[in-house]
Design a protein around this nucleic acid. Structure first.
Lengths: 242, 242
DNA sequence: TCAGTCCGAATTGTCGACAATAGAAACGGC
DNA sequence: GCCGTTTCTATTGTCGACAATTCGGACTGA
């Protein structure tokens, strides 16, 4: 019997996924998303053939994507044993927050040095607008806005490496951050901190802005523990994944 | 004609490379090293089949390794066009140094907070010993010691993420750092700065240690430019690669 | 001379096949 | 009944093949 041509295969997957993106990048993005959201259980072994079947591709693009995610610390790898989901523990969250605080402080200071008044004013306006619409956003959307706020500042720093590293951290703490956002929401805590930071930046008050930023990011170990605890519950309770 | 069995292939490569490591990791390490040392010319397109032939493996492990190096920023990738060597420019060096300075300051401060007296004393001793033997080291070895000094401090910080990020930066600036080491050597500049830093750490003088560290890392744009210039010359003159 | 177009060669993207390895299950001795 | 083997099965590591795409150069018509 003739093996099916490749083209027909392609059409199949396209019909199912309904995404016109080249499979390579698509697969990477998809797995990345799964890892970010802990769709794999912590430390769970990832079966390549199963994943390949799920995404309608062969193992090659899967493995390439996974390897890439390994250096992003979203996935773990052991020779001859395969790929595993990263763990999920408090220490990591705390350590990343510490690094993040330092990097974001630097971002703020550089941005104050280098950004124009218009750019900083635009930041304030954008966040004000975002806050006004906050209620209409889903938690996911709000989390994205939160991340964007920080990344915008990093961009204004003029140092792409700063942006890159913070983005790396963001993808790793995305899950806990989303939980934090929802916590805030439940408590009706408003995001005034972001506004204060942005305003201090417009006023070119570097020390104040840096301090605000630091306090904003710095989380107590207790808070981190409680958030991680909720995260674990969520990971192991939500079984609504096919 | 029968295609050669896989086993024979393996034996072949093993005989040539004389390394008993599993090919996957080996290939990764090898390419990584090449990228670190700019054995690929900046922005040069990397031919997968050629590289595969060179390392006596098929394209699969090559591509996996390359993908991994992409997220390490040692390699660039464009869909359907393949992999490229990263560029080599001053801005990147300057930006990385800026980030590095911040992270290393944090490392120093945390290490002073958390390391024991014995650990810090050991750091001083180790560097003193290293300095005593400095003349017997090759530039490569000396560069490795330099990197190790900083990584040791990061380890003492107790924050593995700090270590990881600094290691990432180190691999990217390895090439320029080696040139700097050689410059220092030509000028007979001794590495007293490291000793001073370590001593300040033993004395638990956080501010002084942090300031010393910052000044040690912070390079002027002019210096960076001159180093990059020399690096470029070296990349394009040394043709001693098969 | 130059821009555009077309063709052929080179290169990448993905696949299925199979060997090597790890993991699990059956087995047997104690 | 339990622990150490042995066998069998599931999974990973690597390969060669081939389609899809890009690249470079020849050709053409101004």
């Amino acid at each position: 019997m003739l093996r099916p041509t490749r083209q027909s295969n392609r059409d199949n997957s396209a019909a199912l996924a309904s995404k016109p993106i080249k499979t390579g990048p698509r697969v990477y993005e998809e797995i990345r998303r799964m890892a970010m959201d802990y769709r794999f259980k912590p430390n769970e072994r990832i079966n390549e053939v199963a994943l390949a079947a799920r995404l309608n591709v062969s193992r090659s693009p899967i493995r390439e994507a996974l390897q890439r995610l390994v250096t992003e610390e979203l996935i773990t790898f052991q020779t001859n044993r395969g790929f595993f989901c990263r763990g999920f523990d408090v220490d990591e969250v705390v350590n990343l927050s510490d690094v993040r605080a330092v990097l974001e402080e630097r971002s703020v200071r550089l941005a104050i040095q280098r950004a124009t008044h218009e750019e900083l004013a635009a930041l304030v306006d954008w966040w004000t607008l975002t806050m006004a619409r906050a209620d209409s956003f889903s938690s996911a959307e709000l989390t994205a806005r939160d991340e964007e706020f920080h990344i915008r500042i990093a961009r204004l720093s003029g140092n792409p490496e700063l942006v890159r590293m913070l983005e790396g951290i963001n993808t790793r703490i995305h899950f806990v951050r989303k939980i934090e956002v929802e916590k805030h929401r439940r408590l009706s805590t408003t995001y005034t901190e972001h506004s204060e930071i942005a305003q201090a930046m417009v006023a070119r008050d570097a020390d104040r802005a840096a301090r605000l930023m630091h306090d904003h990011i710095d989380i107590s170990v207790a808070d981190a523990m409680s958030t991680v605890r909720e995260g674990l519950a969520r990971i192991y309770i939500d079984v609504d994944q096919i």
